[in-house]
Nucleic acid binder design. Structure first.
Length: 946
RNA sequence: GCCCGGGUGGCGGAAUGGCAGACGCUCAGGACUUAAAAUCCUGUGACCUGUAAAGGUCGUGCGGGUUCGAGUCCCGCCCCGGGCACCA
């Protein structure tokens, strides 16, 4: 307890109510909400400002001090922009579907719906205790059927779209059907569209949709009982909980984010995002230019590889397939592994133990690799592998080269197969040495010496020993080879991306159901839009099954439905009808649910028009809030969403953009990452370390204003910084001092105002002496006040809140020392403080205005209760009043500080020079040395060069 | 290994190429008090000279450079944080 209780002997207690945040904060929070002061509405007469927080996941832990950091920053901006006449949209909601809440539900054996309700309620209470100026009427919850109805609706937009490569945009699936029907586009497989049965047509279309089902190796997490997206797996462990993840083949729903790779990459450039974050997205997308090359197999078929160095094709001396590559899957008929070792097989190619044949050796190697975790594979970069017994033909020189299996080639990148050029790739070089494979130089570092550069030479150079591209620089050689490959049908130029399609289904209960049904012919059909939302059935046993089947599998009555197909048989929509309805066919609902990220992919759009039940958002409303600049004006949140939410949301936004449903190509124009707040011990806050700071406790002891202020005062917003209880006390003291200075109901208050030429305090008019002192105080404070307004204004615009606060502290320190405090200046300071510490600012402002006679002095305001400070305009400053009348100019001699001279602010340079030369101290240091030149920076400093 | 950030007092941090260390914390001294707390005032980068007043030297990770002048710009290193990483 700091300064809250005064001893009974302190006489001031009798007269003056101390600053006690608990007495005022709740009151103003309720007032602001009751008066709906922060409600936003479309208003074309005012410029808009959309100020958004990453809405929280209401975990069971409650709020931690990291949450209010970003939220306070956006709140300051919101309150400030309102004062500057902007129409501010500042909403808050709940991202409440997903694994953590469900895990917590399982742990506590409570239904996720209940857990979520409790968590939301707790979070809302905690956030409201901080006095944020959210428009609470727009509160949304991703688990609300009225919300996820539109999540499902947008999913259908993905489902009903295909990506037109040539137009580089998504188009309605109906246009693809039209293209197929009219023969403008060839049907894969070569048949005529009209010759295909509807079910076959549906299967063809399924391969084009942005949402599609695919059997593929996926990240299966046995502990969580679900598959995870690549973005949710970090170092072979689940992002949620850190549980081991294994590769399994499963049939899963995917979203075709790879189609948007190029646009997701290019559109980053124009965004005002932290460079590091853009870099993370670029890395994740992982674009690389190169070529695709087909190597014919001796026994028919081919191996396709991706290479960034097609110019080294003549140096390929062997090939490598990933252990998971289909061509070495012995269960498949088309695998390449012969039953016996070829004659030329070197003993070391057969792996460590002499295996009876290549099939045994390959299988053994595959087992060995499968036994190692992803982690072990990445850490151990020693090269292992085994010869498959098969050979492929290099298209450029018709050489037969051996094919190996090795885990240094990853199935997940490129084609899962490489051509190995040991002379020009470090990894191939290592492998070739170990397996005694030829190393053939085809690039030289020099155009004159064909042997220049130590092997492996990975940098660019000049081609050697490569007929057709001999002597060419690498860049030229690459394009020559690509052209040749294209010409001869062996491949060609190709851009490869690291990013994979987004694995979008989860074997969990607590997520959005897919609005899809499966028919008996094994095709999938979307529900009609009118039947959305497809609500999650109230399943009692919501726990993961442990097997790979989702919990919704158990909701038999929910799953098994009768549907009537409507529309084009190639792309019908299913309407669920009562069983027995004529024309109805049996169907099973999709039992997987959507991942946690689905709801957050578009929530910023729902905030624009949260109660609309005819559209996810009204188009006019969308245009008003999302243009000029394109997207959200300011978005603040943690960097942990760099390649999750921020990438997924951009993807969905672009799909909506292609459908013409949103007006901007990007959702978030400007983005700032707040820095992590560490514990007082400089380490990351965690329960196990016992260094977690609970915002509720801080508010109870110091008040919300102190918490807000301290979080902003700690240091730059983006920076990682440690918590400090002493620091909270520091800003709390500042507020106490401010209270003592400005609480005008104190009989000892020094607040004064001028009314018709007479100075008053709350005890009446001042005598001549004090009046003169008040006059002097006002004059002395005028310039510092204008400087403070300027500093705070500029710093808020820069999001430099720590320095803005220090400027207000400085001004308050002046007030503390001043005999008298003019009330209009107090008012201005409170206006500046309001975005940061709104409760105390509003309270003091109202107190000031409640003193009889005072308000008359502050202008011709209407009678009656004073308006909320939050409605007062932002003060202007006078640039001329930001500089002192008399300046003290530092004088340097040869760049070294040697004295100071006082000159008038407007003094011409010569006068400053003369004043400096006349200064005794300067003269002494000059010691009669002749002045060679001088540099004068007006108002800043004078440098004398001798 | 590659790509981003960043190294400033005892601590968090501040400084359009122009007085380094604003503001806050800490600590010390003083006022008030019977006393303590709170509050208010003063001081608080290091070192040196001086009883003192005052003065001097050094100082923004290290080494160089540009400039009248560098925490700030350029070159080369060291260290810390973050991201990527057998990506063909």
């Amino acid at each position: 307890m700091v300064g809250r209780r005064r001893g009974p002997t302190n006489p001031r207690t009798v007269f003056m109510a101390d600053y006690q945040p608990e007495n005022i904060e709740r009151k103003w929070q309720e007032f602001w909400r009751h008066e709906r002061l922060f409600a936003a509405a479309v208003d074309p007469t005012r410029p808009k400002f959309y100020c958004l927080d990453m809405f929280p996941y209401p975990s069971g832990e409650g709020l931690h001090v990291g949450h209010p950091e970003g939220y306070t920053a956006t709140d300051i901006l919101s309150r400030y922009k309102r004062a500057r006449g902007f129409n501010v949209l500042h909403p808050m909601g709940w991202d409440a579907f997903g694994l953590p809440a469900e895990q917590y539900a399982i742990k506590t054996n409570t239904h996720p719906r209940i857990v979520t309700q409790q968590n939301v309620e707790r979070f809302r209470r905690q956030l409201q205790a901080l006095g944020f100026s959210y428009d609470w009427d727009r509160q949304i919850n991703t688990t609300d059927p009225a919300y996820y109805r539109w999540t499902q609706w947008i999913f259908l937009k993905l489902y009903h779209a295909w990506f037109d490569e040539s137009a580089q945009k998504a188009r309605p699936i109906g246009e693809l059907i039209a293209d197929f029907a009219a023969g403008r586009r060839l049907v894969p497989g070569g048949q005529r569209w009209a010759d295909l049965a509807p079910a076959e047509q549906r299967r063809v279309l399924a391969n084009f949709r942005l949402a599609y089902e695919q059997e593929a190796p996926v990240n299966w997490c046995p502990v969580l009982g679900t598959v995870l997206a690549n973005e949710e797996v970090i170092d072979g462990k689940s992002e949620v909980g850190g549980f081991p993840v294994e590769r399994r083949r499963m049939r899963q729903w995917m979203l075709r984010i790879t189609a948007y790779a190029e646009r997701l990459l290019n559109d980053l450039d124009a965004l005002q995002w932290p460079e590091s974050l853009k870099m993370m997205q670029r890395n994740w997308i992982g674009r690389s230019e190169g070529a695709q090359v087909d190597f014919q197999l001796a026994g028919g078929g081919k191996i396709t590889v991706f290479t960034t160095r097609p110019d080294t094709l003549f140096g390929a001396t062997y090939m490598v397939l990933a252990p998971e590559h289909p061509l070495v899957d012995l269960a498949r008929a088309d695998h390449v592994v012969p039953s016996a070792w070829p004659a030329a097989t070197r003993p070391e190619w057969k792996a460590d133990s002499p295996a009876p044949g290549p099939r045994h050796a390959v299988a053994a190697y595959q087992r060995q690799v499968a036994a190692r975790t992803e982690r072990q594979r990445q850490e151990d970069t020693g090269k292992t592998g085994v010869f498959t017994g098969a050979y492929a033909v290099n298209p450029v020189n018709h050489e037969a080269i051996p094919i190996f299996v090795s885990d240094y080639v990853l199935m997940g990148y490129g084609t899962g197969a490489i051509m190995a050029v040991p002379a020009h790739d470090g990894r191939d070089f290592q492998f070739a040495r170990r397996f005694k494979l030829p190393i053939r130089r085809v690039v030289s570092a020099s155009s004159t010496n064909p042997q220049a550069g130590e092997l492996p030479w990975e940098a660019d150079g000049f081609s050697v020993a490569s007929p057709g591209i001999e002597g060419l620089a690498t860049a030229v050689a690459k394009s020559r080879i690509c052209a040749w490959l294209e010409q001869h049908g062996h491949g060609g130029r190709r851009i490869n991306y690291k990013i994979h399609d987004w694995l979008f289904s989860r074997q969990r209960y607590w997520g959005e159901p897919f609005p899809l049904v499966h028919l008996e012919d094994a095709t999938t059909v979307a529900l009609v839009e009118e039947q959305l939302p497809l609500e999650l059935p109230p399943l009692e046993d919501f726990k993961p099954t442990g097997a790979m089947t989702p919990p919704l599998d158990r909701a038999a009555t929910w799953r098994n439905v009768a549907v009537r197909l409507e529309g084009d048989p190639a792309n019908p929509q299913a309407r669920v009808v009562p069983p027995g309805t004529p024309g109805a066919v049996p169907a099973r609902r999709e039992a997987n649910t959507m991942p946690q990220w689905a709801g957050s992919c578009w929530y910023y759009l729902r905030f624009l028009d949260p109660h609309n039940d005819r559209a996810f958002c009204d188009p006019k409303t969308e245009r008003y809030w999302m243009t000029h600049p394109d997207g959200v004006d300011l978005y603040i949140g943690g960097v942990e969403h760099a390649v999750l939410h921020l990438l997924y949301a951009r993807f969905w936004h672009k799909v909506l953009f292609d459908w013409g449903l949103v007006s901007s190509a990007e959702p978030f124009h400007k983005l700032v990452n707040q820095g992590l707040i560490l514990g007082e011990d400089d380490r990351k806050m965690s329960k196990s370390r016992g260094n977690v700071v609970n915002p509720d406790a801080v508010i109870a002891q110091y008040g919300a204003d102190s918490l807000r202020l301290f979080e902003m005062f700690m240091g730059p917003l983006e920076q990682v910084k440690p918590w400090s209880t002493k620091g909270v006390e520091g800003v709390h003291r500042f507020l106490q001092r401010l209270w003592r200075n400005l609480a005008a109901d104190d009989p000892k208050a020094r607040v004064v105002w001028l009314n018709h030429g007479t100075w008053f305090t709350n005890r009446g008019r001042l005598d001549v002496g004090p009046a003169r002192a008040a006059e002097a105080a006002a004059a002395a404070l005028r310039r510092p006040l204008h400087r403070t307004i300027r500093k705070v204004t500029q710093d808020i615009e820069k999001l430099s809140f720590n320095t803005a606060i220090s400027a207000m502290m400085e001004f308050n320190n002046l007030l503390t020392k001043s005999d008298w405090i003019p009330s209009d200046m107090a008012r201005t300071l409170l206006r500046l403080l309001e975005p940061f510490a709104p409760h105390i600012a509003e309270e003091l402002y109202q107190k000031l205005s409640a003193v009889p006679g005072e308000r008359a002095a502050s202008g011709p305001g209407p009678a009656g209760p004073p308006a909320s400070l939050t409605r007062m305009p932002w003060p202007d400053y006078d640039e001329a009043l930001c500089v002192d009348e008399v300046l003290e100019i530092p004088v340097q001699i040869n760049g070294k500080l040697s004295g100071r001279v006082k000159v008038a602010a407007e003094a011409p340079p010569e006068q400053v020079l003369q004043a400096a030369l006349a200064d005794a101290q300067v003269q002494a240091r000059l010691a009669n040395r002749p002045l060679r030149k001088h540099v004068y920076i007006p108002g800043r400093m004078l440098n004398l060069v001798v």
